[in-house]
């Protein structure tokens, strides 16, 4: 009986060890971005643009942190398709959170995109228009 119980604890313990490491960038993504841009980063039809292999992110690298912080309005073209919904601002996100978020987006949806550093994001945020 005791032996059975201890093997049970061992199994439960092993499952616990299998839990993935926390990913702070993903946590921000799930809370702030996923509703519209989707769990798969594909957006929603003509309403919300995709992030997956989005040329817009690659071409506007130095503006992306500002867009996340301040939101955006007006027409944009992403991968050849026009989008025109208002994106809400996220004024409470810190520079570190935005850096983690961008690197999560890179790893999940833009594998070729260069990693963002805190310094780069911090510099970009200083120049927001």
């Amino acid at each position: 009986m005791t032996k059975n119980l201890s093997s049970l604890f061992l199994i439960v313990g092993l499952f616990g060890a299998c839990n993935p490491l926390p990913n702070p960038g993903k946590e921000v993504y799930v809370e702030k971005c996923q509703n519209c841009h989707g769990i798969d980063g594909n957006g929603l039809k003509g309403l919300y643009p995709p992030l997956t292999n989005a040329d817009y992110i690659k071409e506007n690298r130095e503006r992306i942190a500002c867009i996340i912080m301040n939101g955006m309005e007006g027409e944009i073209m992403v991968n050849g398709k026009v989008y025109n919904e208002k994106m809400p601002s996220n004024p409470l996100l810190t520079e570190a959170e935005i850096t983690n978020l961008l690197n999560y987006i890179n790893s999940a949806f833009l594998p070729e995109n260069k990693t963002f550093t805190l310094k780069e994001v911090s510099n970009n945020l200083r120049d927001c228009k």
Binding site: N35, C36, L44, L47, K86
Partner: peptide, 15 residues
């Protein structure tokens, strides 16, 4: 239409 929270998910699921 301008709902920033659960509506996009609802729309996606309704689709």
């Amino acid at each position: 239409t301008s709902c920033p929270t659960i509506c996009p998910v609802m729309t996606k699921n309704m689709l």
